[in-house]
């Protein structure tokens, strides 16, 4: 009887450790310890290079759930970084608060430059939407972008709208009658749809599917809605099967996977909207560590390993180094200001 009890207790404890070890930050004190020593020692030895990252243990806080697209990109980055830079990279998912929880948790951790967070369009939209005024490019310094998925207008193969011009014209001629599904109100694809309206003067009836794009695809296939706005990757299986057709993508250049699909810009709609995924770090972390991270990750995103891992995960390779990321995000800001103003006005 005693033995059985002891066994059960031991099993419980092992289980408890499993549950914690997988995700709880309390169990991983390493990140804050190791780096604390590193900057203190290295400057004397190698003042030119400053920081040695090859043994660093770095935490990446992902503000979205495990298994999702953002999480996948973060894990690709972590895996590639371990190979290219060395050291250990742990991804933690701190979800909730529309993506704010993870970013706030990163700010709450020690600003030593070894706790990173996901960089995304959130760093522009969260403050503009009035959700979190302080989560901006002023508080976070960009490190890199690895993945970008552009918005695209996608229709059933037998849709009356076979070109983006047809579709936009229908939205101008009969305002508010063409239905356009998105992945939830206020979601980046919804904002992209408002962007199309602002740039063209068309008006669509937006149908939000708050469970995400996958929930809206059956409705598009069944003809309940006329079109959906999402990234081509999200609808790839239906596009390949010939059930759905991409009219245009909101990227700077045509996508390698869809060479025949025009960009919005080509079609006279001056709009670039992409879901971007990369890394950032609290801006007031030690400048030498930030610089070292930025240099190291420029190498990581260019590496063969990283590209292979990303391709295996079916994500679009769209690399930007720190400078490029800052430029890209800042360049998008004015676009989003107008879009979000229109969105807030429409929602009252």
């Amino acid at each position: 009887m005693k033995k059985v009890l002891a066994l059960i207790l031991a099993l419980c404890m092992v289980f408890a450790l499993c549950a914690c070890g997988s995700s709880a930050p309390a169990e991983t004190p390493a990140p804050s310890e190791a780096p604390a020593e590193a900057p203190a020692e290295t400057p004397a030895e190698a003042p030119a290079e400053g920081v040695d990252l090859s043994n660093a243990s770095v935490t990446i806080i992902c503000p979205y759930g495990a298994g999702g697209g953002t999480d996948t990109t973060m894990r690709v980055l972590a895996q590639a970084a371990e190979k290219v830079i060395g050291g250990t990279y742990t991804v933690e998912n701190h979800t909730g608060g529309s993506g704010t929880t993870g970013l706030y948790d990163c700010l709450a951790a020690e600003h030593d430059g070894y706790t990173l967070a996901t960089a995304s369009v959130d760093l522009i939209t969260l403050s503009l939407l009035g959700i979190a005024d302080d989560l901006t490019l002023d508080t976070f310094a960009p490190i890199c972008i690895l993945n970008g998925e552009p918005a695209a207008i996608i229709v059933p193969a037998d849709s009356p709208y076979q070109t983006i011009e047809d579709f936009v014209q229908a939205g101008i001629d009969n305002p508010g009658t063409v239905t356009l599904a998105n992945a939830g109100a206020g979601n980046i694809w919804h904002l992209a749809a408002i962007g199309v309206e602002l740039k063209t003067g068309a008006s669509f009836s937006h149908i939000p599917y708050s469970d995400g794009t996958s929930a809206s695809l059956p409705a598009v296939l069944a003809g309940d809605v006329d079109a959906v706005i999402c990234s081509p990757a999200e609808a790839a299986s239906f596009i390949e099967a010939g059930d759905l057709k991409v009219l245009a993508v909101a990227a700077a250049d045509r996508l390698a996977a869809y060479p025949d699909v025009p960009t919005f810009t080509e079609s006279g709609v001056d709009l670039i909207i992409m879901a971007l995924r990369g890394l950032c770090v609290p801006a007031d972390a030690p400048a030498d560590v930030i610089a070292a991270m930025q240099d190291a990750f420029a190498e990581v995103i260019a590496s063969e390993e990283c590209q292979t891992l990303l391709a295996d995960a079916n994500q679009t390779y769209m690399p930007f180094d720190a400078e490029g990321t800052a430029e890209l995000l800042n360049g998008m800001r004015s676009n989003y200001e107008a879009i979000i103003e229109a969105y807030l006005a429409s929602a009252g």
Binding site: T100, T101, A185, G186, S210, A347
Partner: peptide, 22 residues
């Protein structure tokens, strides 16, 4: 989050309630 407008409701200014209870 209100599924149709995207705005939070009944969160009473608490960021943890912003996207609802788990």
């Amino acid at each position: 989050i209100d599924p149709m407008t995207g705005f939070s409701r009944f969160a009473f200014g608490n960021i943890n309630l912003y996207s609802g209870l788990q």
